[in-house]
Every structure is written in structure tokens, then in C-alpha cells.
Amino acid sequence: MNSRRDYRSNRAALFDGLVEGGIRDYSSHEIDEHENDRAIDGLQDRVNILKRLTGDIHEEVEMHNRVLDRMGHDMDASRGVLSGTVDRFKMSAPHLF
């Protein structure tokens, strides 16, 4: 009789949480955790996409800043050359100014 009880307890331990057809009987707490885990995975995917997107935006902004810096330096150099040209012109034709 003892062996029959052991068999039943072992069988119960083996199939604990299973219902007919092999489907696990989830508690609402386990379902909520599963849904939360899926939501977290979805949010993590979205965060990764946003990180890549903002990284691309950052690189583009940095590139534009470099272009603007070079343009500023070029304009400063042009201003210097033009100022020197105007000064020479003023010395050669003082009566025009």
C-alpha cells in the first residue's frame, strides 16, 4: 500500500501544473509576468532602435558642424583677402572714396 502512495505522489509531482492534454495551468500572476516580460522585450527593441536613430542623428549633426566650421574659416579668410584688396584699391584710387 505504501508503494501505491509513493507512485501517486511521484506521479503528482511529475505532472504537477499540467492539465489534460499537456497544457500548463498558469496562474494569473504567471500570465501577468509573461505579459510584462513580452512588453519589456518590446520596449527594449524600441529603445535599441531609438539609440541607433539618435546615434545616426548625432553623427549627422557632428558632420554638419564640421562643414559649418570649415565654411566659417573659409569666410574669415575671404574677408581678409577682400579687405586687403579694398585697402590696396583705396590707395591706388583715393579720389573715388
Rank of each mutant, 00 (worst) to 15 (best):
P94I: 03
R38I: 03
I23Y: 07
G42N: 01
G17T: 04
I40S: 01
F89K: 14
L18P: 04
L68I: 11
D87A: 11
I57N: 10
P94H: 06
F89S: 12
H58L: 11
D69E: 14
I31L: 05
E59D: 11
M71H: 11
D69C: 09
D69N: 09
Q44T: 04
L14D: 02
G84E: 04
Y7Q: 05
I31C: 03
D87I: 02
L14Y: 07
M1R: 04
R4G: 06
A93W: 15
D37S: 06
I40M: 02
H64C: 14
A93N: 15
A39L: 02
D16L: 12
D87T: 05
M91L: 15
T54H: 09
V19N: 08
G22M: 01
R46C: 00
N2T: 14
I49P: 02
E60V: 03
D45A: 02
R38N: 03
R11E: 05
N36W: 03
R4L: 14
L14R: 13
Y26H: 10
A12E: 07
V47A: 00
D16T: 08
E20A: 04
E62I: 11
R24W: 15
L50K: 03
I49A: 10
I49F: 06
V61A: 11
G80C: 04
P94M: 04
I31G: 01
D37A: 08
G55V: 02
I40R: 02
H95I: 12
A93T: 15
R52D: 13
R24A: 15
D25K: 13
D25W: 14
E59H: 04
A39W: 02
S28A: 11
I49R: 09
N2W: 08
I40W: 01
E62Y: 10
D6M: 08
